[in-house]
Design a protein around this nucleic acid. Structure first.
Length: 221
DNA sequence: GCGACAG
DNA sequence: ATCTTGTCGC
């Protein structure tokens, strides 16, 4: 797929904040799908040579049967350090490289990290979603910000994730008696819809099949 | 000022 | 993210 929307990549946190505050106004947390969802993609990262090289993997699966349709891998020098709240500046460049190689454009992408459940409401799922204009969902393995009530141990149960009196996402149990995941809108996907897709993509394990497939590729060498 | 802190 | 084996529990 082709990627048009581009912006200069920041060298400092100050510059990154300016970009985040500029892009946050473009985020849409309502369902805006242009066509029925036939393909779902997952993205994941890996690093080599002490983190100096970034490795991005994309896996496109059919939906709802979740069969692997296509996968791509991309490498590029790492140019931004990992700083909580600025993950997208470190990972998106390589992710765009991997997405450009994809022939089957996905209708929705599940990202490894937060969506609007972010200090400035622009987690990696929102950032990526705006750059490529495709619906995205944030599925993180741990909490960045927000608080929530305890939730039942059965799969499918969830609790709203609250930050400054606002619901920014959901803590969702994708597998009974297993640690929950943190789901939030990326771009063009509402929270209820995001929860629905995450559950439909996690038929067996805690993490979505999409990210599990991408993870294997990003980890293997 | 003191912690917390996606991957 | 990454360094790393076996092991506990359903």
């Amino acid at each position: 797929m082709k990627i048009n929307q581009h912006h200069a990549w920041p060298a400092t946190v100050e510059e990154a904040i300016v970009i985040q505050e500029q892009l946050r106004s473009q985020v849409i947390t309502q369902d805006k799908f242009k066509e029925p969802v036939q393909y779902v993609a997952g993205v994941d990262m890996g690093f080599e040579a002490d983190g100096t090289i970034s490795r991005a993997a994309v896996a496109v699966l059919s939906f709802p049967d979740l069969q692997v349709i296509e996968t791509t891998l991309a490498h590029r020098p790492t140019t931004f350090p990992y700083i909580p709240g600025f993950l997208s500046f470190r990972e998106i460049p390589a992710v765009l490289d991997a997405l450009e190689k994809i022939k089957t454009t996905p209708n929705i992408i599940l990202c490894d990290g937060q969506g609007i459940a972010h200090p400035r409401r622009l987690g990696i799922a929102c950032h990526l979603g705006i750059l490529i204009d495709i619906p995205t969902i944030g599925v993180a393995k741990s909490l960045l910000i927000g608080k929530h009530e305890e939730l039942p141990e059965t799969r499918g149960s969830w609790q709203p994730l609250i930050h400054r009196g606002e619901t920014i996402g959901a803590v969702l149990r994708t597998r009974t008696k297993v640690k929950p995941v943190y789901v939030s809108s990326g771009n063009r996907v509402s929270l209820p819809t995001a929860i629905d897709y995450v559950l439909r993509c996690t038929p067996k394990y805690r993490l979505p099949e999409t990210t599990r497939i991408a993870d294997k590729l990003a980890s293997a060498r």
